[in-house]
Amino acid sequence: MISLYDYELSGNCYKVRLLLHWLGLEYTRIPVDFHPGREHQSPAFLDTVNPLGQLPVLQDGDFRLRDAQAILVYLASQYDTDQYWYPSDARVRGNITLWLTVAEQLNHTAAAARLQRSFGYAGDSAACQQGANAVLRQLDDQLAEQHFQGRHWLAAEHPTIADIACFPYSALAGEAGLDLIGFPALRQWIDAMRHQPGFITMPGILAVRFAKMLT
């Protein structure tokens, strides 16, 4: 039995929901009042769920795991028998791990700027945006390079947990006050993600069907 300590507007929670959905796994969602209640910083949450006070947290039977990137690795390793999302090939795994760390860099830059602009968090928004642009540049360069070799994904011939990990805060760049106009390969990749069969969205990322009606 899988449970997810979840916050609807969190890109890190969303990436776990997206993989759970693609793996066809049933789970119980435990909504956490991240904003405005700061429940993730409450003594009860720190004592019994995650002493770091972060979301998401996954509970699978007696196994508990924090950190979105770690949860993606666990879920794909445990439940994806086809090894589609986390292939066992050594080079692919090396590359996936590289992009999982880039996803973590997005947390400290693009996600932080979004927290400041949308949720009133304190911080240097301009510095976070500058940092985010450097990370988005890495992603755009990699995707452009892949494109020239006839590939469209970060680490393999098809999307993997590397793409899932980097997707939310790239697609939510607008809410961080960032403009993706200078990142054409990244924009194409975001669009390709949204067109994957069975894709589900989160608030702030437009559903494909609706986006088509706008254009």
């Binding site: 609807e8 507007l9 909504p31 989160m202």
Partner: peptide, 16 residues
């Protein structure tokens, strides 16, 4: 948390 989650999801869709 459940009520807030529903309401914020709605507003999160309006925001973009």
């Amino acid at each position: 948390a459940a009520l807030i989650s529903f309401q914020q999801a709605i507003f999160g869709q309006d925001k973009p």
